[in-house]
Each structure stands twice: as C-alpha cells, then as structure tokens.
Amino acid sequence: MNDALTAAWRRAAGHQRRFDARFADYLDSLTDPAGGGLEIPGRGTFPARALQLVRELSLRGGKRLRVILLHEAAALVTDESVPGLDEAAISIELLQTHGLIHDDIIDDAPTRRDGPSTYYAYRRDFPDRPDTALALAVLAGDLAAFLAGRVLLTATLPPDRALAMAAVHADTAASTVAGQLLDLERDFHPAPDTGLLHEVTEYKSTRYSILAPLRMGLLAAGADLAPYDAELRRYATALGIANQIHDDWLDLFGDPQALGKPVGSDIRSGRRSYAVRALLAVCDGKERELVDEALGDPGCDEDTLDRVRGIARAHGVDRRLRADADHHARRAASQTATWRERWRPEAVAFFAHMPAWSITRDH
C-alpha cells in the first residue's frame, strides 16, 4: 500500500472515530428541546422509547463507510475543514437506520449489529401485542427518516448549500424506498435476470450508500456537480454492484461471528439474491429439490444450509460470485483514472482502492 493510500485509510479511521462521538452528541441533544432538540410529548413513554431505540441502533456498530465517503468526497476538492459534513453524515446515517429498521421488519430479522433488531426489541416489550410491536417498529423507522431530513435543514449552513444537500437527501430517500419496493417485487420472479438485480441494487443501496455521499461531500465543499455527475454515477453503480454481490456471497459463505448476524438469511427468506440466482441456475434433480425446499423456509436448519452451501461450492458458485464482484470492482476503479487530472491525488487514491477493499472485507 503506497503512502497516499495509507494516509487515506488513516484519515478514514479518524473520520469514523470523530463521527461516532459527534453522532452520539447529536442523538443526545434530541431530548433537550431547550437546546434545539426535538419536541416530543411530555406524557407517555412510547415517543421516548422510539428515540432510545433509534439511538441504540444508530450507535451500535456499522462500518460508517458513508461517513468516510462524504469526507473523502470533500477532500477531492480541498484539504480544509468543510462545514456541513457532520450534518450530512448524520443525515445519511439516520437514513441508514431507517432502512435497517424497516428491512428487519420485512425480513422478520431478530438481530442487527450484534444486538436485537428494533422490531424484536418491541416484540420483547409487547410479547402479547404483536400488532402493537409491529406498528411501533414502523413508526420508529419513520422517525429516523424524518430526523434524517431535519438535521440538514436545521444546520448552520448557507441556505443555498443546505437546500442543495437536502434536495440530494430527499431524492435519495425516495429512490431508496422505490428500491425496497422493487426488491420485494423481485422475489415474485422465480429467477430474475441480472439486469433486474442490478436495478434493485442501484435503487435500494447504491444511491444512498455511495452516490449520495459523493454528491453531498462535493456539494459541501462548494463543487459544481453538473460536469461530473455522469461519471460519479458510473463509479457508484459499478461499486454498488460489486459490493452487493460480495454481501450476497457473505450471506451464504461468510462467518457469522465476523458479520455480527446469522448467515443464510437470503435462503431462509426466499430472496432472489445474486447468490441464490447463481445457485438456481446450476442445480437440478435432487439438488434442486433440496434448494427449493430450503428457499423461503424460515426454519431452515444449519445442516440443510450446509448442504445448500456444499451444492453451491460443488458447482463453483462461490468462485463465480467472487469473479463477478471483482469484474465490477475493476470497472469502478477504472472510473477514477481521470480524476487525478482535476482532483487532489490523496483523496483519489482512496476512491481508486475502495472497490478492491469492498470485495475482500469479512463483514
């Protein structure tokens, strides 16, 4: 690893540490109306409990890659401190919290980030009131989404800059929900084609995890997006596909301890992921019967999952997924070839290396 790249990853670790402290302070401030926090009803315990669960999930783990991307996107333009990056980072991470809460409802997932999902926390609160637990989890996710927009609009930024960043955020949030809708529709297709899987990835995750941080970081630094937006999209799209293929590989072949959650969720939920599609394309006969029985079975045990994993390995699905992820990672990295001509090489080195890192991580 060259000196510029080492420095970039050192900066990334610093961004993460500083953000975690800033995020905790912001979430704590929400309970202080006198200090500009959120006004919540004085009576009852449900609103405070929702804020508590949003806070817990938001601060519990996570790689903070969106935060790092925001800071490094601004660093493409300047090495000076950039106002608004903290607010943009809080905004995008709260949008992530919203997505995780709702994803875990949709997937009936008991754990998230080495702890209970928000939905299951409410199910423990109300073991005899499942409808109430579901409603409260939905509302907690909604609360996180509205807080995500609020933080940008209440920031002390020049109005035009705050509005431009809030517009990116609002468009990204709507696209993410549309992606979640398409994600559910995808599983009505017995074997969706890769074009559909790419579009689900684009809308459900790429736009808020990669493209929005790139755009918002550059906007915060005062850059004009128009000349570069098409290539930013190409970079984000290729990196998003590589990242999602690797996520799907981890869900079937990864280490639960490193991931902080059980593997096999795509099999148990019947989700037609990149890995599941590749598996369905190669197995037949008795193998296909086993895979079909496991798909969509929430009670699929570890022994059955091991057998499905063995079928996948026997047909080279694990190797094929890795090769596909590598292909898209290389496409993403190639987009940075011209960035050094106009942007700071220290930050460009980070984005050039990011795709390779994204397909070798263990969580």
Rank of each mutant, 00 (worst) to 15 (best):
L100C: 11
A133P: 12
L76M: 09
R124Y: 02
P130D: 11
T118K: 05
T111L: 14
A89Y: 08
L65Q: 08
R66Y: 12
E80H: 14
V77K: 08
T78S: 15
A89S: 15
P116D: 14
V54W: 01
E56A: 15
L76C: 07
D114A: 11
L53T: 01
P83M: 07
T97H: 05
G61C: 12
I68F: 13
R129L: 13
R49F: 02
L136R: 02
T97I: 10
A144G: 12
D108M: 06
R113H: 08
A137S: 13
D86A: 09
D108E: 15
D107P: 03
T111Y: 11
L59D: 01
L57G: 01
E56R: 14
A74I: 10
R66T: 14
L70Y: 06
A73C: 07
D79S: 15
L143R: 00
P110M: 08
A144C: 07
H98K: 04
L70S: 13
D114Y: 12
A75R: 15
L136M: 09
L136K: 01
D108W: 05
H102V: 08
H71E: 11
D125K: 00
I68L: 13
A89P: 10
S91I: 04
D104E: 09
A135C: 10
I92M: 06
S91C: 10
A144I: 08
E72Q: 15
L76A: 10
R123P: 05
D142S: 11
V82P: 02
A135N: 15
R113Q: 08
A109F: 00
R43M: 02
H98L: 08
F46M: 07
A48C: 00
S81C: 02
L85T: 06
G61M: 09
F126R: 00
E56F: 00
A133I: 09
R43L: 13
R64Q: 11
I90W: 12
P110R: 13
R49K: 12
P127V: 05
I106D: 06
D128V: 07
L139P: 01
Y120K: 01
T78C: 03
A89L: 09
L59T: 10
T132M: 13
Y122L: 13
I105G: 05
G141L: 01
A50Y: 00
A75V: 04
G62V: 03
T132R: 14
Y122R: 03
R60M: 09
S117A: 15
E72D: 00
P110E: 15
I68C: 14
I90N: 11
K63A: 13
A140D: 02
G62Q: 03
I105M: 13
